[in-house]
């Protein structure tokens, strides 16, 4: 699959879900995604490793909505501001399913798309400016280097007597100074990288060629078309069905 096809698919699914607030639609789409999952070639373990924050977010969203969501229908339990009602429970399930259904394609996208391939697709298929696309791609190399820089800065500050202390305010000020130091380092590293890229002819007045072709195959069109139709259908259904619960949505 072309990375852009995956990206568009995740996008239309997200739009459809944001436009609807119905537990059956969210659950149905999640079911479709789960059925499709074995075909993208990801092991459950890898999905768990990349996707656990989504699961946590879904759980938190479900809990808070159940406790504090708009009250409606039968009240099961009340304590102070907490009010668990029939409506808040249904809404909670809907929102939990929705977070999962939006998050899962994102996880798949993140885990299966190489940044280089996405950059190739953006430059070749969508013709985004090369300076922007490949500059951003190269800058991503620097993230690891900057993470190391941050660690070394922390050590160096501790060695010089400016490490985290007991006074939170002083510590905050020192952290701020450290962020600034990292910023200065990032600028210097960035300009060296830009120099190295220029030395390799980046931005030369020639038509650039591509070592890796980014192909848009028929199956990419099929995937995006089918998912767009599904998403469109979902939006239509959600208008007809509403939220599935009277008084909500």
């Amino acid at each position: 699959m072309n990375p852009l096809a995956k990206f568009l698919t995740a996008l239309v699914v997200a739009i459809a879900l944001l436009a609807s607030l119905n537990p059956f639609i969210a659950g149905g789409l999640l079911l479709v995604e789960l059925v499709a999952l074995p075909f993208v070639g990801l092991s459950p373990r890898k999905i768990a490793r990349v996707g656990w924050p989504i699961a946590v977010a879904a759980l938190l969203a479900t809990l808070t909505t159940a406790l504090y969501g708009r009250p409606f229908g039968h009240t099961y339990w009340a304590w102070g501001p907490i009010l668990i009602t029939e409506g808040s429970l249904i809404l909670a399930v809907t929102i939990g399913l929705r977070v999962l259904a939006i998050g899962l394609p994102g996880v798949v996208l993140f885990a299966t798309v190489d940044a280089v391939d996405l950059a190739d697709a953006l430059a070749q298929l969508w013709r985004l400016p090369q300076r922007f696309v490949y500059g951003a791609l190269a800058a991503m190399r620097l993230i690891d280097v900057l993470a190391e820089d941050w660690q070394t800065l922390s050590l160096a500050r501790r060695a010089r007597g400016l490490g985290a202390g007991r006074l939170p305010l002083a510590t905050l000020g020192r952290r701020f100074a450290q962020v600034f130091a990292l910023f200065v380092l990032a600028l210097r590293r960035g300009s060296t990288l830009a120099l190295a890229m220029d030395a390799r002819g980046f931005g030369a007045p020639v038509q650039r060629t591509y070592a890796r072709p980014s192909l848009w195959r028929p199956r990419d069109s099929v995937l995006v078309t089918v998912m767009s139709l599904v998403a469109g259908g979902v939006i239509v259904l959600s208008v007809i069905w509403g939220s599935g619960v009277d008084g909500i949505g």
Binding site: D114, A115, V116, L137, A138, R141, L193, A196, M197, R200, G201, F202, G203, A204, V206, R208, T209, Y210, A211, R212
Partner: peptide, 15 residues
Amino acid sequence: VAARVGDDVAFGCEN
């Protein structure tokens, strides 16, 4: 410049 050895060497040629 790139995440993979081959792409890094190819970068100058592409440009």
